[in-house]
């Protein structure tokens, strides 16, 4: 089962995805974050919110690209969603496969642990304490996940809990399923 998913994802990554230079990608994202910090005068709460909003706008469009490219249908459980997001979604768009861990008892919460983060390669947060306490550098990912899952009728609360840039041991994103938006599921699906 997991071999099939991995094979699908690898196949799509190799053949159907256009690639760019990863340094260019890191530099572009880095300059976006830096400019936001300057624009908001280092109000990191605002910067986080802005990054999440940008990510949300990306997510609601990216989901169509994901569905069109992979031809996948609806997931039957939140566990399946977690597997698809980590093994196919992240693989296709960032070429990383985060670990799915820390499932809650009711199966409605899980964590994605990123071993490597292409957005934050070579990045070091500024020395002042505020940044390392308040800024989630890769917060755009939070918005992307939220937006994409909302378009497939899953209302999910997404947030960073740990970031290596902040001095933690790993980069971890927590996802909590709030509810399935049953009213918005398109008619004609069982």
């Amino acid at each position: 089962m997991s071999k099939t998913i991995k094979a699908t994802a690898d196949d799509i990554w190799k053949n159907k995805v256009e690639k760019i230079n990863s340094e260019l990608f890191t530099l572009t994202y880095g300059s976006v974050v830096a400019q936001l910090c300057r624009d908001f005068h280092n109000d990191y709460v605002q910067v986080n919110a802005q990054l999440e909003r940008m990510g949300f706008n990306i997510g609601i469009r990216l989901i169509e690209d994901f569905l069109a490219r992979t031809g996948l249908g609806r997931c039957q459980s939140f566990k399946e969603t977690a597997e698809v997001v980590s093994k196919i979604g992240f693989k296709i768009f960032l070429n990383v496969v985060p670990l799915v861990t820390n499932w809650s008892g009711d199966g409605k919460q899980f964590s994605l642990v990123l071993e490597e983060n292409p957005l934050a390669e070579f990045v070091e947060l500024p020395q002042d304490d505020k940044a390392s306490r308040a800024l989630w550098y890769s917060n755009v990912l939070v918005g992307v996940l939220k937006g994409a899952l909302q378009m497939v009728q899953l209302e999910v609360d997404v947030a960073f809990v740990k970031d290596v840039l902040r001095g933690d041991d790993a980069t971890e994103i927590r996802l909590k399923l709030i509810k399935v938006l049953r009213d918005e599921v398109p008619a004609g699906e069982d």
Partner: peptide, 23 residues
């Protein structure tokens, strides 16, 4: 309505057309 086994049940991607019971 039959329960949909989805991606993990069948081991291959279900067609992107989510039109199982609509026109």
């Amino acid at each position: 309505p039959t329960p949909n086994t989805g991606f993990f049940g069948t081991g291959k991607a279900v067609a992107g057309n989510c039109n199982t019971s609509g026109l």
